[in-house]
């Protein structure tokens, strides 16, 4: 018998792959992925960052420019703001769905899974255009509002920050739901039952048992959603206006329209650095939080 990891982990009981396969085989198995990452990710990104400092000559002028021109800081702040709001909304909307998915069974579970997965498999482009159809001046939403007498003239919905947030939340929702679902599903029902047995109300059982145990899923969902929102490109470009310009669009402009690759590299580096910083802070905060279920 090999040493078993502690019980209670959803994946406990099975030996890890490092225990199963020898180091040579492990290395061999991981080589394709490493090659792909190096060739398809590390090399081009590294080259871009290298270019932002050393092309045409060693200078930090590109980074200084980001600080000097107010546009770039404005867009950076706005990008984070939108990403925060989208992540928070996705968590609020996604958590109950993940819970429901994990708790029901049979047809209902299939139906919920279909509602989550089919949009995920649908092109982002199609979903973004669907939002245009909904939100345009003579679109579904405005027509409904006018017919019910809630407004006399069509509201301005499309090409606003609200439209970007709504569409991005919908597009990214599955990335929040699925990680939470996979964790919640593995929390044994007995835990909640035990809590209820000991006198906890259903709310108390949720906040003191289910929620803390689902935090790893929440962390994963929040991180994935947040990082994807930061780099989102298609949806903001389609349903947003120039007033909702985000970093990825700005970087796209620099690379495809203005052909200023060194500066685009600088913008990308700043975005990546800011993202990593936030991810680290977030993980730290969550790690500290782990104590609260005991308290």
């Amino acid at each position: 018998m090999r040493a078993k990891p502690l019980a209670g982990s959803p994946f406990g009981g099975r030996p890890t792959s490092a225990q199963e396969y020898g180091p040579g085989l492990s290395l061999l198995l991981v080589t394709p992925l490493v090659l792909l990452l190096v060739g398809g990710f590390l090399y081009p990104v590294g080259k871009l960052f290298w270019g932002s400092v050393f092309v045409p000559e060693a200078t930090f002028a590109n980074y200084a420019r980001i600080l000097q021109e107010p546009l770039f800081l404005l867009v950076l702040c706005r990008t984070f703001e939108i990403a925060f709001v989208v992540t928070a909304l996705a968590l609020l909307l996604g958590y109950p769905v993940a819970m429901a998915m994990a708790r029901v069974s049979g047809r209902t579970a299939m139906l919920i899974a279909a509602c989550v997965l089919i949009p995920l498999w649908t092109s982002v482009l199609v979903r973004s255009y669907a939002w245009i159809v909904l939100l345009q001046r003579n679109g579904v939403v405005n027509n409904a509002l006018i017919e019910t007498g809630l407004t006399g003239t069509p509201l301005r919905l499309l090409y606003t920050q609200g439209a970007v947030i709504a569409a991005m939340t919908q597009v990214l929702l599955p990335f929040m739901i699925l990680p939470i679902y996979s964790v919640v599903r593995n929390i044994p029902d007995d835990f909640v039952r035990a809590a209820r047995n000991l006198g906890a109300g259903s709310l108390q059982a949720f906040f003191r048992v289910t929620l803390p145990l689902s935090l790893p899923g929440v962390t994963a969902g929040v991180l994935i959603t947040f990082i994807l929102s930061l780099g989102f490109y298609i949806t903001p470009a389609l349903v947003g206006g120039p007033g909702t310009l985000m970093m990825s669009t700005l970087i796209g402009q620099q690379t495809t329209e203005l052909l200023d690759w060194p500066f685009a590299g600088a913008l990308a580096a700043v975005l990546l650095a800011a993202t990593l910083l936030l991810v680290i802070v977030f993980r730290r905060a969550l790690a500290l939080n782990k104590g609260f279920k005991l308290g």
């Binding site: 021109e69 107010p70 546009l71 404005l74 867009v75 120039p242 007033g243 310009l245």
Partner: peptide
Amino acid sequence: LQRWSMWIAS
């Protein structure tokens, strides 16, 4: 161009 991109994004 520079002034425009600032004006339109804010």
